[in-house]
Design a protein around this nucleic acid. Structure first.
Lengths: 213, 213
DNA sequence: CCGCGCGTCGATCAAAAGTTAGAGCCCGGC
DNA sequence: GCCGGGCTCTAACTTTTGATCGACGCGCGG
């Protein structure tokens, strides 16, 4: 009772009941941690986190419906005195990690982390320091070494349609562009990605997380 | 004590500690169910399931390393007096469901299922009857209605390389074929998938789970 | 034994994609 | 107010891809 160390109060945000139960089982036996609430949607997590009695939010990135975890993280961390947000998700792909961290997440763990790592990460997050799963850290390092071949909005739009199998002409119709313009955008994409065909561009962009699926 | 209903003995096979803890938390409070073992790898699940004291195996499909859940299911269900295998996984894509069922799984649930559905599915599986998550069932129905455009081994090989962005010539070199033969295979693929370009074929085949990533 | 699916190869022709080299417009930052 | 980046468009040219043939050997099952 004379401890200066306060209890770390947690909010679990995940749409899977099983995962929430698992996190609860793993974390509530830890000394110094207490789970004060659960949320099954990102929206619920946002409103609950605003009540001010939470120190760390464990946030999934994928929710079945509505807002995603990164968006929720951005909203939560925007207000003063906000809790720390620790991302706990299944996959650590390039495309997921960066937006989450930009949104203000304090750490990023994969769900296959052993329980002790999880608890340690929660304590680290509560103290305001960062934790990154090793595989995620690797990915980030690679990202920094080989700086993102940023595509412009238009280039991404064009490439996304190409990835669905549309021809240049079809892409042009869809975006109200001439076939020539589509070719022009694609030529820039090829140069940026270091490839020389649409299919190779789709493969490269998918690997880099620049487009989905 | 005069109950004729026996206890249903469970084995949890999942490489995520959190998920195992969650399943345990959800299921061990259920009357008539008891969890006798956990396995963090598919191999471990196979050996543990062979010991004969298990009624139902809850099996994940993706394991970080080694054998996957479908292969493990095939091995487990191959022996006489084998336990039932209930697939409990995150995603229910076309590509996952069919192999798992062919491997002898009794049911297929998604991890976002509510706890009561999970327990019900375990009891159903123990009784030897099947359970399919609604979204999974939908997929299977679609599959049956639009019968799989099965690609031959060679066609799949060619298409996989095309998906990585290789040209026909490059594919030919890689597989020791002439460019003409590659074109011939691709022409067949296009006909089967109902498309008319390599990029569209890659998109369609990815959707159907005929090729990876 | 014969047919059929598969895998292989070839050739031609037409269409799509990719290359190159421009040029004009709009907007935001210096 | 000028400059540059992003976006749009044009045009001619080359390469790749796809369509459509036809052909051969091989293995497997009726």
């Amino acid at each position: 009772m004379t401890e200066t160390e306060a209890l770390i109060r947690l909010l679990l945000a995940d749409d899977h009941p099983v995962v929430r139960a698992g996190l609860r089982a793993v974390l509530e036996t830890e000394p110094g941690l207490t789970i004060v609430a659960e949320a099954a949607t990102a929206e619920a997590a946002v409103t609950r986190a605003a009540e001010g009695d939470i120190d760390v939010v464990l946030m999934d990135l994928q929710f079945g419906k509505g807002m995603n975890g990164a968006e929720a993280t951005a909203v939560i961390t925007a207000r003063p005195g906000a809790p720390r947000v620790l991302i706990v998700t299944t996959y650590g792909t390039d495309a997921d990690v960066v937006p989450a961290i930009e949104a203000g997440a304090t750490g990023y763990l994969l769900k296959d982390a052993p329980p002790e790592d999880l608890a340690a990460a929660v304590r680290t997050a509560a103290a305001g320091r960062s934790t990154l799963a090793p595989t995620v850290a690797d990915r980030l390092m690679n990202r920094l070494r080989a700086p993102r071949a940023a595509l412009t909005r238009r280039e991404t739009e064009v490439l996304a349609l190409v990835a669905e199998g549309l021809s240049n002409q079809a892409v042009g119709r869809r975006l109200h562009l001439t076939e020539g313009t589509v070719k022009s955008h694609l030529a820039h994409v090829y140069a940026k990605l270091g490839v020389d065909s649409r299919t190779a561009a789709v493969a490269a962009a998918t690997d880099l997380g620049l487009i989905r699926r």
